[in-house]
């Protein structure tokens, strides 16, 4: 049995819990409910040559990066970085969290999700910025937990990255 621990990392209210709910249960709720501590979910992903169980650690988003608890990431093999496309500052938060985990636990595969793509009129992250990150090797997905756009793709991509 192949099991992999994956951590959801990002600022508060970017949609980490909603993305997990969309991916695991295919549901979405408009109501914002902040996560405290960590909520653990499990989802099997069928790849072309194997099946991998993702153990998803949905960590509380922090408005203060300093208070982030690195101990939650222990044992993780991959990261889902989540930013809110309508709040450009959350991109910096997600990237900083990755730096901190990398400094503590070493580099690990990750995907970057720019979430809330359904809110196109409030979008604040430029195409240029996205293309630049893509060119430097980031795997970026413009997702919507509301519509489900690109959510499965992103998780499946990470599943195949961590089970290589």
């Amino acid at each position: 049995m192949l099991q992999k621990k994956i951590c959801m990392l990002g600022g508060f209210a970017v949609g980490k819990t909603s993305l997990v709910r969309r991916f695991v249960q295919s549901i979405f709720s408009e109501t914002y409910l902040t996560t405290v501590g960590v909520k653990i979910d499990k989802k099997s992903v069928v790849l072309s040559d194997k099946t991998v169980d993702l153990i998803l650690w949905d960590l509380a988003g922090e408005d203060d990066i300093g208070s982030f608890r690195l101990s939650y990431v222990r044992g993780a093999t991959g990261l889902v970085l989540v930013a809110d496309g309508t709040r450009a500052a959350t991109l910096t938060v997600a990237l900083t969290l990755r730096e901190r985990t990398e400094a503590e636990f070493g580099a690990m595969p990750f995907v970057l999700l720019l979430n809330k793509s359904d809110l196109a009129d409030q979008w604040t992250i430029s195409d240029d910025a996205i293309n630049e990150m893509r060119q430097s090797g980031y795997q970026i997905y413009l997702t919507s937990a509301l519509s489900g756009e690109s959510v499965d793709d992103a998780f499946i991509q990470l599943a195949s990255l961590v089970s290589k």
């Binding site: 099991q3 992999k4 621990k5 405290v36 501590g37 960590v38 909520k39 653990i40 153990i55 608890r69 101990s71 939650y72 222990r74 044992g75 993780a76 093999t77």
Partner: peptide, 18 residues
Amino acid sequence: EGLLPYTDLPFHIPMVEL
């Protein structure tokens, strides 16, 4: 998953929702 075997004990993970 990923936590065992772990040598550096004791270790504490707060507020895990089951």
